[in-house]
Design a protein around this nucleic acid. Structure first.
Lengths: 248, 248
DNA sequence: ACAGAACCTTGACCCAAATCAAAGAAATCA
DNA sequence: TGATTTCTTTGATTTGGGTCAAGGTTCTGT
């Protein structure tokens, strides 16, 4: 996949409001029109379920603003988050009838949806879109596998530090403000949601956050606003060497 | 993605020996020839490393026979398996220069490799292949997410039962012999590899296998040959209701 | 057939995280 | 404004699985 054939990032996408890069960027006119026709927006309030696992799902979508989670549950209620959808993330699967996960809005959220049928047809005719989607799916797979390492082998403290590092990085990527290593952001998740993400209980999450604060790795203002005085320190608490090449 | 545009399974693929369905099935003549040209086989002995994480990887490949694992490690040596490659599974990522995981042969293995450049070029020109690859990647992502549920929320006993159920199912899918619910298969992994897969220690794996045997959920002949007298019982030990629709 | 290595099992003990419990902030509502 | 609910913190206790240790099996090569 030569670089010049890969779509650039969404903001270059003229007036197509969808952030999802496979759809937006460098669209040829015809394709753009076709997508426009099958496109609609839906918004959900914090806490609302977007779709239940097993429900019929006749659309694919990208997150415009807000945050949603993908979760799986065992029948006795144990819950594991398996994905975190931030703005520009894609959800849904061409070629599948029903949803495989619960999708829940954790903040107020706006999604840009496409009816699945037309989307699939466009995908068949425009290699760029299928290839961009493949690339994104491979990125998600990498993220899932990194998460497997976290779930299987990291301690509670390392798990928390990893999550904070990920949120900090995603935030930095958007806001581009990190004077000399200091970062500041809002946690978009409750303690319980963090616990579900990390395979912990909410009490353990709370205790470890308190511990990181006590040890000066982070500072807290209220319960959600976090300052990271030394990102490298946080990364080393997270246990893995590589930063995934995310930060410049 | 209409059904008639999806490639059927590999065995229908004439004399193309690769099992990887995106490449093999229903190939048009030109594409098949192109793939033939860039194709070569490599074999590895049990225990050999196929490729190290971070190494340059200028091929993609599918497993012809044998078993390989994908693993990630923390710098202090903690290891987590993030993928299990059985015959017909695909490894490698178009558009990436270096390997993201360690790939290790756990049995003697034969892989069918394609040079990455030609493979990518063919992918650009033949939508079928990109779409099949997308479908496979989405399947892998689903599997990874199911594994996240296992790693984050299941008990040691449930983890072992889940792994046994998965191996039993893959085996049944190949051999198609399960008289009235009884299944028999060989574990393709050492206790240590199972531990790395499940986020446990090898001692815990050993203890839980002994417990399942004591409780009559499985029977063991030697250390590797397993008989499952009641697959439903095993599934209920695994903790999740759905069997993923795998068995008929 | 034997020696050595690799793999596996079992026991004793310990600790990180779960569970149980209570109470303190913060948001929402009447 | 206070009342209720939701979210969070902290403490006390328990426990599942890790760690350390010692043997037992099976495989491999000579």
């Amino acid at each position: 996949m030569p670089a010049e054939d890969v779509h650039p990032v969404a903001p270059q996408c003229g007036d197509c409001p969808i952030r999802h890069r496979a759809v937006c960027a460098r669209c040829e006119a015809d394709e753009l029109d076709l997508l426009e026709e099958s496109k609609y927006y839906r918004s959900f309030e914090a806490g609302q379920t977007v779709i239940w696992s097993g429900d019929r799902m006749d659309f694919v979508a990208s997150v415009v603003s807000g945050i949603a989670t993908l979760t799986q549950t065992l029948e006795d209620g144990r819950t594991q988050m398996v994905g975190l959808l931030l703005p520009s993330d894609f959800v849904g699967r061409p070629g599948r009838e029903t949803a495989a996960y619960n999708v829940t809005a954790t903040t107020d959220i706006v999604m840009c949806c496409f009816r699945k049928k037309p989307f699939e047809e466009i995908m068949l005719r425009t290699p760029h879109i299928a290839q961009r989607l493949l690339e994104m799916t491979l990125d998600e797979l990498d993220a899932a596998r990194e998460w497997m390492l976290l779930l299987g082998r990291k301690t509670a403290r390392e798990k928390i530090a990893s999550l904070l590092a990920i949120v900090a990085r995603r935030d930095a990527a958007i806001h581009l403000r990190y004077p000399e290593g200091t970062m500041t952001f809002d946690l978009p998740l409750t303690r319980e949601a963090m616990a579900d993400y990390l395979g912990l209980t909410l009490e353990t999450v709370s205790r470890q956050i308190s511990a990181l604060k006590r040890d000066g790795v982070i500072e807290l203002e209220g319960k959600r606003h976090v300052t990271v005085p030394d990102f490298d320190r946080l990364m080393s608490e997270a246990g893995d060497d590589s930063d995934g090449g995310f930060l410049p």
